[in-house]
Nucleic acid binder design. Structure first.
Lengths: 343, 343
DNA sequence: CTGAAAGCGCTTACAG
DNA sequence: CTGAAAGCGCTTACAG
């Protein structure tokens, strides 16, 4: 075991933390070599790598994220921007992202934008100061400034929920419009003649689903009937919309709700009002959220692959962060129509 | 505008970032003074503070978190450990925490423990490496090692959901046992004779509620009847428990569920089975989650102040992080019994 | 394949 | 109340 030939380092350090320096002394190499060996950079002799690794393990060395960030101008943080935490959809997405990123040593910084572009911009600014290693953002609807911020930062970024084919843009999701179209088409096929589309929140993805609904209706030669409410989505609002539609358009024989919470609320309202689903009116939702299969009748809906989206987005991002090429920058994970008792 | 008398700094910096140095030159003071002025440390002349502030603003200076963390061995991160993201309770808690911490310049690091002490310990280790400015953790049920880690780190820590009176321990929450007791007492008062307690997950707070239930039953001279299921809480499980209780103990005339999702599931099962609530059997829940007021009949429950808990915990933590004394280290925010149609 | 030097951008004592 | 010096613990070019 060769003793270090370096001049004695001034101990003790204030922090009480094991440093790279100490590992280097223990392994009898220079700090840079330790740094390289531990980060798995090529260009280090296998024998040295082993020696360094053992010394590090024995001393219980763990790199200091702050020092690393300062020196490399890149942290181990990944910023994740989602619209809402109160929609189970995004909770599932987040959970999958964290599950993939954490074991790889990345910390997740969760930012909730409340569907507000200004809030998103502010969060982005704040995150970018921390020189994140990567970014995951929801959809493509943001201010030009926010777009510029992302681009100018050079930080790898993956977009989730929607996809787009554009050079240099990475996205994992599914076609919201096609999903809206498919559910509508199925209701038509099942013999429904007057199908309404009801939505809240009216975010971009909601409007894409509406677009799909319209396409299906037009193809079938039917006039679309839409109830679009800008309020927050909720069970209570679903019940209100249900009553409103019944009242304003008694001929409607099916309602396609933009989110399961609305549809669940409608189902409960139907029970309260004594309206029979699906005999008198069919109800369909979107996302297949918790409880939809427990409703009375169980809710027909569109199952969306948010866990897979989270996992794949995290994987794609990790490739980008390692500087690897991503062969498939646009990943469409599809969706599934789940027919249950309500339609 | 006094020109700097310092030797020319080697420009250009790689990062393209405005530094403290540059602000110092612009303001004609030393970097340390800028640092002090911007952090609002006393002991800087008011006139200089103003001059520095203006220079900083004009240059668009923002401190580098990594450099700051390295130099001060304290980051601007606050680690928040919660059991689950899929329980709306914790989402509300988180939202309130973020809302309080973000404007103050703290970044939230959210760790999901899945009720697993080993996972919590691992997260804690990982967070502590980042030298967080503060920590918010759920309850008091953790491994001795985890406890030691927190204590030894010296990082300010606030416990949420439960409270305890112990020197040096900070907590914001309410008495889970009293809440359980109060709801049970109310059911007894309303004339229910055979009250069951049904729970899932069986985390410490659940067991405390059970304890409260037992106390109320014993005080009324009734034998407690408990259905404790270790599975994850869900609507579906609530339905199952409901059927099971009906089957195993037909004399039961009220069920107190440990969480609203179980109770909601029970209500739906009752509808399905044609069991009349509350005439045949009363149902009560806990937490007053989304949708409980929309049920058929609307669910009686215990409203818990998780948003207030999040907000107050964040405030308490900020005091601690600033090194201020906290006069009230134990904050009991109470609860509220909400009687609706189901009991 | 390995290392000596410099530097990332701040803050912490220590003086005065 | 202000500053010069040193250092936090890494990594980035630059040599060899």
């Amino acid at each position: 075991m060769p003793a270090s030939s370096k001049p004695a380092v001034k101990r003790p350090r204030a922090s009480g933390r094991i440093t790279l320096q100490e590992v280097a002394e223990a392994a009898g190499v220079s700090p840079i070599t330790v740094s390289r060996a531990l980060r798995g950079e090529r260009a280090v002799a296998a024998e040295l790598v082993e020696r360094v690794r053992q010394a590090a393990e024995q001393l219980g060395y763990v790199p200091d994220p702050a020092a690393r960030a300062l020196a490399s101008s890149r942290s181990s943080h990944v910023g994740v921007l989602i619209p809402l935490l109160s929609n189970a959809l995004f909770v599932d997405l987040l959970d999958a992202i964290q599950r993939a990123l954490l074991p790889a040593g990345y910390q997740t910084l969760i930012g909730v934008t409340h569907y507000d572009p200004a809030e998103e911009e502010a969060l982005l600014r704040s995150y970018l100061l921390h020189r994140p290693a990567g970014l995951i953002v929801t959809g493509f609807d943001r201010t030009p400034v926010a777009r510029k911020l992302i681009e100018a930062s050079g930080v790898p970024c993956v977009h989730v929920m929607e996809t787009v084919a554009e050079a240099g843009v990475y996205s994992v999701g599914f076609s919201q419009a096609e999903a809206g179209e498919a559910m509508t088409a199925q209701l038509i096929e099942q013999g429904r003649r007057h199908i309404a589309f009801a939505a809240a929140q009216l975010d971009p993805r909601t409007l894409q689903r509406a677009e799909g609904y319209r396409r299906a209706m037009q193809r079938a030669g039917r006039a679309p009937r839409e109830w679009l409410n800008p309020q927050r989505s909720s069970l209570a609002l679903g019940g209100q919309l249900f009553e409103q539609i019944l009242h304003e358009a008694p001929e409607i024989d099916a309602i396609f709700f933009n989110n399961d919470d609305l549809a669940q609320g409608a189902l409960l309202a139907a029970l309260r009002l004594g309206v029979h689903v699906p005999a008198e009116i069919a109800v369909a939702g979107f996302n297949d959220l918790t409880g939809s299969d427990q409703m009375l009748p169980p809710l027909s809906t569109v199952r969306t692959p948010r866990s897979a989206i989270g996992r794949e987005a995290a994987r794609m991002l990790m490739s980008l962060m390692r500087g690897e090429a991503v062969p498939e920058p646009r990943l469409d994970l599809g969706f599934e129509i789940v027919r249950r008792g309500s339609s």
